[in-house]
């Protein structure tokens, strides 16, 4: 048998942590924050590979780090959510359960595998009010933190988080929240410490819309996002009544053209199956 060099468990864990932290800090950042109309995800992303996506009706997912690793986690999360929703009820799928499953998986990977995952992920669930929103941060070693209101992850997350927390309020409108998030993301990484200006094409933006029933996840892109970034919209889409079909996000036309995002208001998935049995 070959003689192995002894390395203390502390040393192994330290090395793995350092490896994961290095990988994460190289990537672009993402922020998640609550606003008056729901939960907003903003990620700096130049590619068409998604960092932000839908897990379930009221649960969203954002991640930074290595794409193949967090994509694997995202798919597992969707599977767990759909399986639980199918075996129990759609209401029984909670953000906390998904966050716990991720913590379990990342913890197992961190201790068992040779290489830790270089990812940091966020699971957010939108509640009926801003106080009821839940935002969880799960790090590479499987630890979970409940982050009330706002969180940032990725390279220079501390600085971004600081900029966010200063100006964040739970009653921000969607436009205000998007501009705050983009300003915070742009506050780091510029030449000589100067803030950068991020355009719509450099961003991936999505919301969990508090007032919708059923699937609440919506992506915001293109003209809608540009409008939110540049000006103060007189009637923010977040303040519209829940009954009328939202003009944004995203506009109905855009939805037709690329049916990539989740469904329509009228999709009464499974709820009416329950009614049938009454």
């Amino acid at each position: 048998m070959a003689m192995q060099f002894y390395a203390s468990p502390e040393q192994i864990m330290r090395d793995r942590s350092e490896h994961a932290r290095k990988g994460i800090s190289r990537g672009r950042s993402a922020v998640v924050l609550t606003y008056e109309g729901g939960v907003l995800f903003v990620a700096e992303n130049l590619t068409s590979l998604r960092k932000v996506s839908e897990i379930y009706d009221r649960i969203g997912f954002a991640a930074v780090g290595r794409y193949n690793e967090f994509e694997n986690l995202r798919r597992a999360g969707v599977r767990k959510a759909d399986l639980d929703g199918y075996s129990y009820d759609r209401r029984d799928v909670t953000g906390r359960a998904i966050a716990n499953a991720y913590a379990h998986a990342l913890g197992a990977i961190f201790t068992e595998q040779v290489k830790a995952y270089e990812v940091e992920i966020c699971v957010a669930e939108v509640g009926a009010t801003a106080e009821a929103d839940e935002i969880y941060r799960i790090t590479y070693d499987g630890s979970v933190q409940d982050e009330p209101g706002v969180m940032a992850m990725g390279g220079q997350a501390e600085a971004i988080s600081g900029a966010l927390k200063e100006a964040h309020r739970a009653d921000l409108s969607l436009g205000e929240a998007v501009r705050l998030a983009v300003k915070a993301l742009g506050s780091v990484g510029g030449e000589g410490g100067q803030p950068r200006t991020l355009g719509a094409e450099q961003l991936e933006v999505a919301v969990l819309d508090r007032r919708r029933t059923g699937r609440t996840f919506r992506r915001i892109a293109g003209a809608t996002l540009t409008a939110l970034l540049t000006e103060e919209p007189p009637a923010a889409p977040a303040t519209e009544s829940p009954s009328e079909p939202p003009s944004e996000p995203p506009p109905a036309k855009e939805k037709q053209a690329s049916p990539q995002s989740a469904g329509s208001d009228d999709l009464e998935i499974l709820d009416d199956l329950g009614d049938a049995e009454q």
Binding site: N72, A76, K80, L83, S87, A101, H104, A108, E112, Q113
Partner: peptide
């Protein structure tokens, strides 16, 4: 049993397997 519950602490299979 809900998937993902494995008290051994090992990585649940469906997290490791990309699947369809």
């Amino acid at each position: 049993m809900p998937a993902g519950f494995d008290p051994s602490g090992r990585l649940p299979d469906f997290f490791a397997n990309p699947g369809t």
